[in-house]
Simulated assay, not measured.
Amino acid sequence: MTAAREEATPASAFARIGGHPAMRAITERFYDLMEQDPEFAELRAIHAPDLAPMRESLPLFLAGWAGGPRDWFERNPGKCMMSMHAPFPINRQTAEQWAVAMNRAIAEAEVADREVAEAMADVLSRMARGMARE
């Protein structure tokens, strides 16, 4: 790719937000909130006792979803968030708790581009609320 073409290519949301460090910070704060804040108790209850696998997986998903490395998608071919969450009892309340916790995690994380972070929070919140089956 030529230098001129490289300059014309906009940076991905993943790059603009701060790459893997930002995605990990968001994920860690999100799961810390879920584990420590009683506001998210119902959400926490529908998750596995050990959140370590999710703490490892979510930042990889977010990275690929935001235009960064697609490692999560390559490891999970043909999977989508809706089908992966189908077995869980997601109602409006737990979907809202997820959205609120993720918004707080993103708002509290150090990111390189706050505008991209806020847009990401908005889209993820809408996705979460769309998973409610009640």
Rank of each mutant, 00 (worst) to 15 (best):
E134A: 13
A3K: 13
V123F: 09
E42D: 14
R16G: 02
C80E: 06
P59H: 04
F61W: 15
A8L: 13
H47S: 03
P38F: 08
L51N: 08
L58H: 11
S125V: 03
E110Q: 13
I17P: 02
W65R: 03
A22F: 12
A25E: 03
S125P: 01
R24A: 13
P21Q: 04
V116C: 11
E134N: 14
A3L: 10
R129D: 09
T9K: 14
M81Y: 01
R44Y: 00
R16W: 06
R5S: 11
F73N: 04
F40H: 06
A132R: 08
F30L: 11
I46T: 05
A3T: 11
L43T: 04
D50I: 06
A11R: 15
W98L: 06
A22C: 12
Y31F: 15
E96Q: 13
L43F: 07
A3F: 09
R16S: 07
E108S: 07
G67A: 01
A8C: 04
R104C: 09
R75H: 10
E110Y: 07
I17D: 00
I17N: 05
I90T: 10
A119K: 15
T2M: 02
M1N: 02
M23R: 11
R29T: 10
E110M: 10
H85C: 03
R114M: 01
G130K: 02
R55H: 11
P87M: 09
E96I: 09
P49H: 10
R44V: 08
R55Y: 08
A86L: 13
I26L: 12
R114Y: 06
D50W: 05
M84R: 07
A25L: 08
R5Y: 08
V123P: 00
E74P: 02
